[in-house]
């Protein structure tokens, strides 16, 4: 299935505010999504460790995914997925 992921923030030295399209197997979970992104973009903070260290926040349909459930949370094509850098201010 084809998944669109919205990226917003500075990940590594890359500042990204764009969407990427990625192919995943049916019923892939969040951890598998991050692994695929990591391969595609070569940014290692796209990982469950990155979630745990608060380098990234993964949100699906407006809800923050707890890294503990990254393996259990399956994704479908209609999901609105975003990965953001957890900063606030301005």
């Amino acid at each position: 299935m084809k998944i669109i992921v919205n990226l917003a923030g500075s990940f590594g030295l890359k500042s990204i505010n764009s969407e990427v399209s990625i192919d995943l197997k049916e019923n892939a979970n969040v951890e598998e999504l991050l692994q695929a992104l990591r391969r595609l973009l070569k940014i290692k903070v796209f990982s469950v460790k990155g979630m745990k260290s608060n380098f990234i926040v993964v949100m699906i349909n407006g809800e923050r995914i707890d890294p503990k459930f990254a393996k259990n949370r399956n994704i479908c094509e209609s999901d609105y997925i975003s990965i953001v850098q957890p900063i606030q201010g301005g």
Partner: peptide, 13 residues
């Protein structure tokens, strides 16, 4: 980037 760094992030979270 200044304060606009967080514009996209903020509306999402």
């Amino acid at each position: 980037y200044g304060t606009g760094l967080s514009t996209a992030i903020s509306s999402e979270v």
